[in-house]
Simulated scan of single mutants.
Amino acid sequence: MAIAKSAEEFGLGNLYAWGDNFAGQLGLGDKTDRSSRTQVGTFNDWQRVSVGPNHSCAVRRDSLWCSGMNNYGQLGLGDNTQRTTLTQVGISTTWAAIAVGETHTCATRASGTLYCWGRNNTGQLGLGDTVNRNTPVQVGTASDWVALTAGFEYTCGIRHDRTLWCWGRNTSYQLGLGDNVNRNVPTRAGTAAWADIAASYTHTCGARTDQTLWCWGENTYGQLGQGDNVDRTNPTEVGTGADWASVAAGRLHTCATRLKGTLWCWGRNANGQLGLGDTTDRNSPMQVGTATLWATVSAGRAHTCGVRVGNNVSCWGGNADGQLGLGDTTPRNTPTVVPGLKARPMRTGSNSFSNLSVG
């Protein structure tokens, strides 16, 4: 699935979606896949969006909306009924960052408080138990959450003091706590100061405030960028560079931008999701082409999309469900511009962009 927002002034704009739609996750009122960008509804005040494999959520200027699979209450609507159109979650008008995982959702409000809902079998909601929730429930009492990311049955967030906290599934060391024990409440990961964080299936990557890049968890396909295929139980630095700007973690691959605007990818590449012109896996960062104007990047199961300065959106990788938005189902192994789509590259929280999110 891919979903993007065409932003107008002040970061508000129309919402567009394309790709796999078997559960109605595109919010278009049906379950028909789309291979080209399709506008979602008629509202033009969308601010940010986050998608998972089976459901998606988006924030308007004054409300939160979700659609798709809802078997665990991950839409936050108080039931387990699937929705094919974006449906408003509660009545709050103060939602900020949003992070959609495999079967759960978390979001912050303008006050800095954190809420989670959906499946909770490994404690991914951070509520101190493993009971599912079908409406938003506040996580703890902290009111200083500034960034958020959700992966496969786990969640990580950054607080105002730049400390990193993770919780949920930890069987592949993805929480970065030095062990493989699940946690059902937010648990601090180390003492470093973090600027950006990206959760995935079984690995996590983040950029620190000193602009170094770190990854941990499963490394079967080299997705940690360490030059090998050895798992890591704690955050481990990727190379020696101190110029990383943002990072996105796909199911088994990772991509990141550097301060000069270059784009780098590594890990699984069976579908060309690294954008390197082939389908060969890489276990260390490789520059994608020679372009130097990449602003943001988002990674999904087997495809990737990015925004370059000038607001052009490009996608590459697997395309069986039309998730590249190119009007066909042909895979691409190099970045290819999505026709007719512009997107403002505004950051709105870790692994979530106001303009672009892929699942």
Rank of each mutant, 00 (worst) to 15 (best):
R301P: 09
R347H: 15
L86F: 14
R109V: 04
L213M: 03
C315G: 07
R109N: 07
D281V: 02
Y201F: 12
R34F: 09
Q25C: 07
P136V: 08
R347V: 13
Q323N: 08
L276Q: 14
A147R: 02
C106S: 05
D33R: 04
H203M: 07
Q223I: 09
G27A: 12
G300S: 12
G76E: 15
E237F: 01
G289A: 09
S314R: 11
G24E: 15
D243K: 03
G11K: 04
T236W: 02
S357Y: 10
T279S: 11
L252Q: 12
V40W: 08
R34K: 12
E153C: 01
A58C: 02
W316N: 01
E237M: 02
V137N: 10
V139D: 13
T105I: 03
R332F: 11
H203T: 08
G310M: 06
R251I: 04
V230A: 03
N319E: 12
T280C: 05
T334D: 13
D129P: 02
Q287N: 10
V51Q: 12
R301V: 08
V288E: 15
F152A: 10
R268A: 11
L15T: 13
D20E: 12
G68R: 01
D62I: 00
S352G: 03
L341F: 13
T280F: 11
W266I: 00
Q39E: 14
E153P: 09
T81I: 03
T336H: 06
G78W: 05
N351K: 03
V288F: 13
S350Q: 07
I3W: 12
T191A: 06
T336C: 04
N351G: 07
G78R: 04
T113S: 12
A256E: 12
G327C: 03
L26T: 10
T103Q: 14
L77Q: 11
T149W: 06
D62A: 00
C255Q: 10
A97Y: 12
N170M: 01
